[in-house]
C-alpha cells in the first residue's frame, strides 16, 4: 500500500469514529448558539443547531453516515447530562418539608395527566384515521 492509501484509510476510520462525529455535532451546536447570540432569536441555540443539521441532512449536503455514531453516543448518555442539574435542590432546603411534597404532587399528577391526555388524543385520532383508510379500501 502506498502512503496515500494508508492515509486515506486512516482518515476514513477517523471519520467513522464516534469521538470525531461527536465533535461534528458539537460544532453544529456552537454554530446554533452563535447564531442566536448574533441575531437575538428567542429560540435556544441547540434547537437552531438541530434545525440546521436536519436541513443539511434532508438537502443531502450532509451524509447521515458522518454523524450517526456521534448522535447515538450523545443519545445513549443523555441522562448523565441531566444529573448535575438535579443537585440544584441543595439550594432550596425549604422544599424538604410539606412544601416539597406539594410541589412533588403537582409535578407527578400534572405529568401523569399531560401524558395520558397527549397519548389518548393521538391514539384516538390514529384509530379514527385508520378506520377511514379501511373504509376507503
Amino acid at each position: 500500500m502506498t502512503i496515500y492509501q494508508h492515509m486515506s484509510l486512516w482518515l476514513r476510520r477517523f471519520r467513522q469514529s464516534s469521538p470525531f462525529q461527536a465533535l461534528v455535532i458539537l460544532l453544529f451546536w456552537a454554530l446554533g448558539e452563535a447564531i442566536v447570540r448574533v441575531t437575538g432569536l428567542a429560540i435556544p441555540g441547540s434547537i437552531v443547531g438541530l434545525l440546521i443539521m436536519l436541513a443539511l441532512l434532508v438537502g443531502k449536503r450532509l451524509r447521515v453516515r458522518t454523524v450517526r455514531r456521534g448522535a447515538e453516543w450523545y443519545l445513549a448518555e443523555m441522562l448523565l447530562f441531566f444529573v448535575p442539574a438535579v443537585l440544584a435542590v441543595l439550594d432550596h432546603p425549604e422544599f424538604l418539608g410539606l412544601l416539597g411534597l406539594k410541589i412533588l404532587a403537582v409535578i407527578v399528577l400534572g405529568t401523569l395527566t399531560v401524558m395520558t391526555v397527549t397519548a389518548g388524543a393521538i391514539d384516538i385520532c390514529y384509530r379514527l384515521g385508520k378506520e377511514d383508510v379501511d373504509v376507503a379500501k
Binding site: I25, F28, S46, G49, L57, Y74, V83, P84
Partner: peptide, 17 residues
Amino acid sequence: LVALLGPATVAFAVPIY
C-alpha cells in the same frame, strides 16, 4: 456535563431524519 445537553439536543436531528 450539563452543557452537553446542547449537542445532545442537536443529535436528535439524526433519528428525526
